[in-house]
Amino acid sequence: MRRYFGRKLLIYGLTFFMAVTVNWLVPRLMPGDPVASMLARARVAQPEAQEALRVYYNNLFGFDLPWWQQYLNSWGSLFRGDFGISLWAFPTPVADLLTRAVPYSLALLVPSILLSWVVGNRLGALAARRKVLDNTVLPVSYVLTATPYLWLAALMAWGFGVVWGIFPVAGGYSFSMTPSFTWDFFVDLFWHWLLPFSSLFLVALGGWAIGMRNVIIYELESDYANYMSALGAPQKLIRRYAFRNAVLPQITGLALQLGVLVAGALVTEIVFSYPGLGSLILAAIQNKDFFLLQGAFLFIVLGVLIANFIIDVVYVIVDPRTRVGMVGAAA
């Protein structure tokens, strides 16, 4: 058991190291100079003052150091919990921007991932036993799962927001409101949350339903199901066993899909101008904001890694076969 988790932690550690390195490298390989664009925004006329500002900024962000020193420094500040200062929203610290955006992203991601997984699995299991449901749920699921996140998001924003005007199309809450702990504000928040959530939920739902249907049909044909039927066990018990065993590959599927779901959420946020990490990343890219981009990606990487680790642990708890494999079976 300890060896298993030791190995897992090593793999996660390596992934984290690679991710931070790539995060550091990619923004710096993008064309363009962030300091130049900051200077342009500052509209300083005199060349001397401009030169002084350039030196000041370059020194402030450490761009005057050799690249390897910049890289090592970035690790140092990472361990100090210092994400640097945003270039785009200068002089706001990146950490502040992230803490403002992360709750919105989590509020979209966590419910849409978990609910689509739970509901999709239930739906797939139901479809596996009723012909009528199978003939309706399955085709709809195929369409949903083949839909690109941004396309469904754009379609829903246009349909429900622009054409019918039922839902707001942009923002985390109405521009006329200030965030406060009032009932009105929460209703407004919820109203803005509903469309982006639904589009994420629907696309993910289809895949889970298809997967569950196929696995459960396989489980219901398996030897243990046949044996139980031969001993006259009621279908309810057999289905319960089949469902539980069919959930196992779906848990693995969740671990595999996590990255895709997060990427989908980022795109959806941009479509709905939702004030989460996705919108932040877009702004960071447009403004060549190295530090913001690094910070946002770091958050995403950390989130995906932690979620994967939780899934690994859950899998060990629910599938006895993995546990036996770890301590060596009596075979």
Binding site: S222, D223, Y224, N226, R244, L248
Partner: peptide
């Protein structure tokens, strides 16, 4: 199929 007749996760 006695080898696989029992539910593996119970």
């Amino acid at each position: 199929y006695s080898m696989s007749a029992m539910n593996p996760t119970r």
